[in-house]
Design a binder for these strands. Structure first.
Lengths: 205, 205
DNA sequence: CGCCGGATCCATCGAAAGATCGATATCGGC
DNA sequence: GCCGATATCGATCTTTCGATGGATCCGGCG
């Protein structure tokens, strides 16, 4: 059973690579899209069995939004997310949005094809060794910052000292320190330098 | 004149895409490498006319290092850098290391092929609209970090304390402080937290 | 109502960071 | 050989961080 596939990636080269690899294995690529909007439009007319979708799609809708819309269709395709970065927090959101799984772009070509077969059959797809990371991420207490903590975080990222943050937010330096401590706890880091880095990694900035 | 080409990218899919696009236009791909080390080894035995090299290559040598080594060969190939991020500071370093130019990965397939022709003919290659960015980058007060400063910067970004950085780099805490001071001066910031943020903004991390 | 958990606020104090002096050693180029 | 850039190390001093403990306010909830 040869599944029909729609490719979604903002890089023409990547689409060409996926197409050549997939078609060499006897699958059928029914279309290509470079944006999320285009992907949704094409999917509703082409009715692919599987959509291979990059997580980051330049401007406009990202892979998560695209997945959500695709899964709301009458006969939704299986969506497999492609991504370069393993630690991307968005992966979790994509799974929650209904993705059948995700693949790292540095995996072997055969793994990609195998993943398409699995996804077409309705199975969950995970990059080798990725399942444990998903579980860890789902288990990890979600990082939710209060409004005030977010205010402080942005200024910390600018490199502002506690005293400066205090005057800009019209609170005392002591209060700033408390917020910073809470930020460090929530982000699981030990210093403000790491906090800025970690927050960026988690997509909080 | 069909140029011989060596592909260097840590993602098999990208290599497959480049190969299919390039071979469809009558050029010859003589080899593929997934790391910089592999690229240098293959280039010295295959003597390609053009090397298409990704700027970021996972662990080990990056595109800049690889370019430098390739250009030191007896009959050096023309090196064209591929990159996802336009604002990447490394692009400048790659050009300095002897790259014939760079291409953004989101360019059209025809542009890639045209770039290969140009590079094989010894011409400078730039992504559309990229020349002005190069000029701007060269004109802007350059932030060039030494190797050691880069080492320290990476650990600062992790949130490591000076003492920890010292033990991990096998130097004294005093030396670490010296490097940190230089980093703050070069990056034009006042704290290590801001240094990490600024370095990321400039594409130095 | 009373209690509790959260968000926000504040004070104190030891540890770390950053500024400011200093110094020696190496390496490449003029 | 001299000079500039880099890398290394040391000492002192002031400022800032981060940890800890405690305070207030406020919106549920039994």
């Amino acid at each position: 059973m040869s599944a029909s596939i729609l490719l979604v990636d903002d890089h023409p080269i990547v689409r060409a690579g996926l197409r050549s690899v997939i078609e060499a294995r006897g699958f059928t690529v029914v279309g290509e899209a470079s944006t999320g909007e285009e992907a949704v439009a094409l999917a509703s007319s082409l009715h692919p069995d599987v959509v291979l979708c990059d997580l980051r799609l330049g401007a406009g809708m990202d892979g998560v939004d695209t997945t959500a819309q695709l899964r709301r269709m009458p006969t939704p395709p299986a969506v497999v997310i492609l991504t370069t970065f393993d630690h991307d927090a968005q992966i979790i959101r994509a799974i929650e949005a209904g993705a059948a799984g995700y693949l790292l772009k540095d995996v072997d070509n055969d793994t990609i094809v195998a993943a398409i077969s699995d996804a077409a059959a309705g199975a969950l797809v995970l990059t080798p060794g990725g399942d444990s990371r998903i579980i860890a991420a789902l288990r990890a207490p979600r990082v939710t910052l209060t409004d005030r903590e977010r205010d402080v975080l942005m200024l910390v990222d600018e490199g502002a000292a506690n005293k400066e943050i205090a005057s800009r937010l019209f609170i005392s330096e002591s209060t700033v320190k408390t917020h910073v401590v809470h930020l460090l706890e929530k982000l699981g880091v030990a210093s403000r330098a790491a906090a800025a880095s970690e927050a960026r990694r988690l997509g909080l900035l």
